Simulated assay, not measured.
Amino acid sequence: MSRRLSILKQPILSVVNDHLIDYPTPSNLSYWWSFGSLAGICLVLQIATGVFLAMHYTPHVDLAFLSVEHIMRDVTGGWLLRYMHANGASMFFIVVYFHIFRGLYYGSYASPRELVWCVGVVILLLMIITAFIGYVLPWGQMSFWGATVITSLASAIPVVGDTIVTWLWGGFSVDNATLNRFYSLHYLLPFIIAAASIVHIAALHQYGSNNPLGVNSSVDKIPFYPYYYTKDLVGWVAFALFFSIFIFYAPNVLGHPDNYIPANPMSTPAHIVPEWYFLPVYAILRSIPNKLGGVAAIAFVFLSLFALPFINTSYVRSSNFRPIHKKLFWVLAADCLILGWIGCQPVEPPYVLIGQIATVVFFLYFALVPFLGILENRLITHQATSSAQVA
């Protein structure tokens, strides 16, 4: 016992013990809370595979595509590294999207966990930037034209737009300077995401995890290890099996076949689409006929998420006890799926109109959040008053 106490006095071991072993955790957490640790595993996998891929990748427009093929064909285990990294990005976003929607459903953004949610939104934005510039690195057709289309959006910003585009390109077109900049940033940003994740965890552990009931569970907590370590382990194994199916049996199903064609500035693909995890935001961008309006809509998506803890007015966190919000939540979830479907469709009727309606529904959710909270609070007060009168 004394030996254990002396070990725990060591600074690093003490931090590990306080946050991963003896960390007090609500006793009623479900498997939905396992997606947080899964996101951490995905981040570690992406950094590890990315470092090894960087040893063989050449950031030059004449050699980038060939270096990726060299990794796939000539490097021992290179195909596995490449498929783990490429599909790992999709797995990372799947896990994080489930993590976000769990937070929305159970009100994990509500006071006093505003900082946890806001840092999480920053991490999501950093992930999107990192994934986008990483998608450019193979220098295939979709990489080149995706970079051209998305970076050109900055030109819609008044006064400084053209300067920003020139800076992003490193010249007057998407070329070798662009590829070098994106390669450098793609290597750097994951470590910034890791640092932000540490801040995210520290902010979470300040007040403790939320729980399915959304109530204060400070008197009903158990150590994280071995209880939730074992529970999370089940989720890790299930995730590993799901991930392995894509790596070994369908490694290219989540990508675009045009990206196996070397980049050609003289040949525009028939239909330019981003990776699947960008499609909902891409659909919102396309639904606005004005370029500046589309850029503003994308910014407003993240501002809405960032503002959610501050516009929330409900006394109750969990949607299990908010029947109106529960219905609104599932409308939002279905709407995001529709936006994802619209994002991969051509820009023509009726997809344009459906995308515009789905965009309105998406922003309507955030507009209704404060009013819905006020309505639910009044209903709760009315029910409490009626119960008191009956008693």
Rank of each mutant, 00 (worst) to 15 (best):
W117T: 03
D162A: 01
P158C: 07
W167G: 00
I94C: 08
Y183K: 06
Y187S: 09
T163K: 08
F98H: 08
S155F: 09
I133D: 03
V160Y: 09
Q141V: 07
W117Y: 06
L104K: 10
G146K: 11
I129Q: 13
M142L: 12
Y135V: 01
A177Q: 02
G161H: 10
P112Y: 02
I128D: 13
H99Q: 15
T151D: 02
N176T: 05
D162I: 05
V160Q: 03
F144N: 02
S184Q: 12
F93W: 14
Y106W: 14
I164P: 09
W145Y: 14
W139D: 12
Y106R: 09
Y106N: 06
A110W: 07
S155P: 04
L126K: 00
L115N: 00
A154G: 04
F93C: 08
I94N: 12
R102M: 08
T178F: 10
L179A: 01
L179K: 10
S108Y: 05
E114L: 05
P190I: 05
L188H: 03
V95I: 14
G170Q: 01
E114P: 01
P112L: 03
R102N: 04
R181F: 00
I157K: 06
C118M: 08
Y187Q: 11
L185H: 02
P112G: 03
L153Y: 07
E114G: 04
F101S: 13
Y105M: 04
I128N: 11
Y183V: 02
L125A: 13
V174H: 04
G170I: 00
I123P: 05
V174N: 02
V121H: 07
I150T: 08
V159D: 07
V96L: 09
W169Y: 05
Y183P: 04
R102D: 09
P138S: 15
G146I: 02
F144H: 09
R113N: 09
G161K: 12
Q141H: 08
W117R: 03
M127P: 08
L115C: 00
T166E: 03
I100T: 13
S152Q: 12
T166K: 13
F98I: 15
W169H: 04
L115D: 01
F172P: 02
E114H: 14
N180S: 11
Y109G: 02
S155A: 15
Y187T: 14
I192Y: 12
I100V: 15
V121I: 13
A194E: 14
P138E: 12
R113W: 10
L125P: 01
A154H: 08
W169G: 02
T148R: 13
D162H: 04
H99F: 13
V95Y: 14
S173Y: 00
G120Y: 01
T166I: 00
L188D: 03
V159S: 07
G170W: 00
V174T: 07
G161M: 07
F101K: 07
P158E: 06
Y105I: 04
Y109E: 03
V174E: 00
T148N: 14
L168H: 01
I100C: 06
V149E: 10
P138N: 11
P190Y: 11
I192H: 10
V160M: 10
I192N: 01
L126I: 00
V160I: 15
Y135I: 00
Y187L: 14
W169N: 07
T178K: 05
I123W: 12
A156F: 10
Y187M: 13
F144I: 06
